[in-house]
Amino acid sequence: MWKSIIYKEWIKVRWYLIMLTLLGILVLGIIFLGVQHDKIFSNANNYWYAILFNGLQYYSILKFIPLLMGIVFAFAQYYPEIVNKRIKLTFHLPLDEDKVILIMMLFGMVSLIISYGIMVFLFWGAGSFFFAREIVNAAMITITPWFLAGFGAYFLIATIILEPIWLYRILYTVITVLFIPLYLTDSVSGGYSPINLSLTVFTLVISVSLLFSAYRFRKGEM
């Protein structure tokens, strides 16, 4: 039964997941094409200097990509469930309802981890080809909250979609819109180093939030 649920999730999201990952890789391609171009046109030493001392973030166009991916992925996975209240069919299965929701969420989270993981690995690998580890490490610290924003948005958008009452959906949207910028505050390269760990833990804690909406949906809250 669990395998079937996971397979159902896979059917729903597979093309979105593949396309979003390809989009991410495309953006990385653009970033490093830009790096190669700028390295040649402004000399590598001047380019390094601009990164080290003038605050140039060669990867700045990446900032909202994981967020966008998280939002689209949440819609791809949860929107079909509320069309004609299809998720109610899942709730009628002889399975623990919380567990079903958690498995769906876990599936989505693992999918995003794989997709983001590929991007982060490519970002790190290509970065290490062009730059010294000091530059790459600072870049990794800076992009971490951007990817966490993707996870945060995924969990909260899922909560919004599963919420049955429109008024509360709007309230949750307002909170989400105010909350997500915490991950995206402008910062110098490496400026997020004291907070990345706590943000990661915090994002993991948010993951169970959609149980609340699912519960309200299940009970037919009006």
Binding site: D98, L156, I175, L178, L182, I206, V208, S209, F212
Partner: peptide
């Protein structure tokens, strides 16, 4: 678990409003 999930959402709201307001 769902009750905990509610408190997590309340916590997110507290953090958000404590920053924004």
């Amino acid at each position: 678990m769902k009750k905990i999930s509610r408190y997590i959402l309340v916590l997110i709201t507290i953090i958000t409003t404590m920053t924004a307001l």
